[in-house]
Design a binder for these strands. Sequence first.
DNA 1: CGGAACATTGAGAGGGATCAATGGACGTGG
DNA 2: CCACGTCCATTGATCCCTCTCAATGTTCCG
Lengths: 239, 239
Amino acid sequence: MKQDILNAACSKCSLSETCMPQGFSSDGMTKLSAIVATRLRIRQGQSLFKAGDPFASLYVIRSGFFKTSLTESDGREQILGFQMVGELIGLDGIVNESHSCNAKALEDSEVCAIPYTDLERLSKEHSALQHHMHQVMSHEIVRENGVLMLLGNMKAEERLATFLLNLAQRQHVRGFSQSELQLRMTREEIGMYLGIKLETVSRLFSKFSAEGSIDVKKRYVKILNPAYLKSIGDKQPHL
Amino acid sequence: MKQDILNAACSKCSLSETCMPQGFSSDGMTKLSAIVATRLRIRQGQSLFKAGDPFASLYVIRSGFFKTSLTESDGREQILGFQMVGELIGLDGIVNESHSCNAKALEDSEVCAIPYTDLERLSKEHSALQHHMHQVMSHEIVRENGVLMLLGNMKAEERLATFLLNLAQRQHVRGFSQSELQLRMTREEIGMYLGIKLETVSRLFSKFSAEGSIDVKKRYVKILNPAYLKSIGDKQPHL
DNA sequence: CGGAACATTGAGAGGGATCAATGGACGTGG
DNA sequence: CCACGTCCATTGATCCCTCTCAATGTTCCG
């Protein structure tokens, strides 16, 4: 895993609002900046870490796009989530001091590595940071709860619609378009996340497109009728 | 939600090994014991909290059995997990200071309520406690990752087998039988957890029983052939 | 230009859902 | 003590959503 190491400077970072607790003292900010010493460059297709790797740091995505996944002994892969700018990866490693999932870059990316022991030490002095960590972890739990609902109760059509709307919404929060998506993952990866096969994903894209709900051209997707996509679950019986 | 309030004493509690960080100072133990002031009695069918309730405390199960679930606006319910003695409930509430899921007792139960603000304050002074909290949250994330794999990649048969083995294993860790289960939930609730219908659950119980893998009599289940149940995923193509 | 990776589309099969009927267990009230 | 209703579990018949297998098309890159 070859990586370029850059220098990080949290105080100048445009992500400081998402990444840092709000109301964080400038003293705390300086110290946090000090421990976030390294910024890594991960190329498309490279792994940030793999299941079994020793856990040392959490990673904040500076730029780029990742997937995290779990691989069974027999090769089956479940994608746990797609992470974009400002999101955190690596929380799975804390329990056993080794990672239990894989994190792979779906495009050339940069991440800030936050050494976990340093972070723990610093969060002891700064309540805001401590609370922020709890919030981030709780947020991840709540996010996964939503995915459980998706996988346990929704049909393929509703899953894909939910997925597209979620991507668009997260982009929107980051100041990008709410309706236009440039997908970073293959149909197969979408399927591995949604618990359906790639052919089903492809068929549904075609179906949505034929209905006029979206406009698809390979990885480019434009959401034309978000209200309809949201309502898919209402109109059909459930899984 | 009527609840009896009892007094708690962590230092005397038989759960202190699971509940407390190892290597926790006796001073810390005493202080933690002080904030875990209340022990609640929740009867079968009662809710400990519901989605939307303000978040105040985490809860450790002293005795009994719970389910946590997410309810969609249209009434669909996804069970997120079943919790038994020594396990923690309520982490979902930290992010938004209100709970996002429901927690209901499946049998008469007792829980220790740990006020969250007190816990945060105390964990500032005690690194071991702080680290313990991180581990517990990370553990929950890793657990949910496993459920995602189950829902996303496994067929019904494998899901149910995995579920039974998981229950048995957790019982075993707590000193109970590794092979005999007294289920606390209905077939429908098992299905709502595994993403399948209650009829399918029932049919699979019958199938496993006919194969000699388990012995079923209503809520009583005895695992006769754990190795076979573990291997179900190998022999059939996946979802 | 040819190959690899990705995407689309069709035909057929199958696993689980759905609809429906039956039976046991349990508690309540006559 | 039995009758009755309710809740839960079992089992059958049928349907349909999604998987599987397969062929073809597109894009990109060596």
